[in-house]
Amino acid sequence: MKNNVNNKAIICEKLTKQFGDFKAVDQISFDVNQGEIFGFLGANGAGKTTAMRMLCGLSFPTSGKASVAGFDVYRQQEKIKASIGYMSQKFSLYENLTVSENIEFYGGVYGLSRSEIKTRGEEMISKLGLGNEAKKLVGELPLGWKQKLSFSVAIFHKPKIVFLDEPTGGVDPLTRRQFWDLIYEAASNGITVFVTTHYMDEAEYCNRISVMVDGRVEALDSPANLKNNYNTHSMDEVFYQLARRARRTGD
């Protein structure tokens, strides 16, 4: 991390995205430490997705500064893309490709060598217990497995940061737990996890969380501190108190 003096995975300073008169993201500032699990919360329409798109190198900010994995979001989008992983709320593997073909494809897209793809792929398949399913089409797997596979593929190229956009939508609580085991494992391997979610139990799993309201970051702290500050025992209540202030309606 030559460029990154502070060992921060993500640094945002007054990052803003404006569409016409509408400030989708309004001067947000926060840092994410390396290896941290950072929860990015907010009601629908609060500006989470727009902020995340800027950080992933998919769109340019209107103003403000930000760096991801030590790279500038204005000038080094290509380098950012090579050092992050991404998993979206929509399922992100190819249904009519087999498990191994999906792994080969993403490995290839991220420029891994054939032998790397082979060894890491086998390792991953055995870790997920998908040995018998490797030659099956992904479309035939149950949703929970798909999701776990999807996450494993997102970190297959060993990115510095992985962005998860509502990764556990529609999954049962047990699978969600197992999913979070994978997230913890990734974080313990030094991968920074940036995750958006609507589940407050998941928010509790994060090291720190930020809550966006109307394009601004209204609160940022560890779950325990937030509950203290808002004088409550549940994250639900914290979120509710914050989100209630919103003047925008969800999309």
Partner: peptide, 10 residues
Amino acid sequence: GTMEILLVSP
């Protein structure tokens, strides 16, 4: 939704 993944990739 796979297009998003492709766009985020290098």
